[in-house]
Amino acid sequence: MNRLVFGRYLPLDTPIHRLDPRAKIIAMLIMLVAIFLPTGYGGYIVLGLFILGTLLLAKMPFKFVISAFKPMTFMIIFLLIINIFSIKEGRLLLAYGFLEIYSGALLQTFYIVVRLFLMIMVTTCLTATTKPLDLTLGIEYLLKPLKRFKVPAHEIAMMISIALRFIPLIIEETMRIMNAQKSRGVDYEEGKLKDKIMAILSLIVPLFAVAFQRADDLANAMEARGYIPGHERTRYKVLKYHSGDYILLTIASLLLGSMIVWSIVL
């Protein structure tokens, strides 16, 4: 399980890792908005350089960043095909029977791809440098003001962190049940659609049974240790903003501001 996967946390100790999760979440949201402003390639270069700088500071291995793009290949090809058929602007580059490719289609696809690349890099900056639990803690802090509107911020954060904690266990369990069923002659790979659906059922039913058992055990353990949903709790980890966080937020805001101006002037 040691592959480099998009969204995985990379345990390193860099200035970016040490930033407050709240600052990182807000900065990510600001950057996402900035990326979607229509500034043309000039803006993308500025944003790209900033993001690249952050990735370098966080000591992200090049391979890790690239691996995040692999699942996107199919989507990019799909986008390109759609654009070729729908956008008929710019110069005609190629005409072959009914197929006509215009420069506008390529340019448009290129912009979208660049935006996607930037978005993935920004989110990688966040997820790869922040522990899942810190991330949920950050979300909880940020959702706190919504408590007034009866948004159960703490419960949401608790649910996310427990889900994150149990994902590897559930995957392991799935593998175990699959092997157990295979040894009893269930075929997951071949056969007609109907047989395949039946095979999947033989996996899902025990998986759910086990998951409910786990949930029951966990609820008991939490209750026995004094957890009461909605009740006041103290927190072991207390978040505090440091100078680095202010710097990050200032840079991100300045970038967003200049992108807004840029897109209006253009």
């Binding site: 904690r165 240790r225 004094g226 709790r233 103290t234």
Partner: peptide, 30 residues
């Protein structure tokens, strides 16, 4: 109370966090 299944009663994401879980519920200051 300590239950049977080691995985189903580990609530925190690290040893530290798990020991802290009960303390948080009992309002021990951070």
């Amino acid at each position: 109370i300590v239950f049977q299944n080691p995985d189903n009663q580990f609530i925190g994401s690290t040893v530290r966090d798990d020991i802290a879980f009960g303390l948080e519920n009992h309002l021990v200051p951070s």
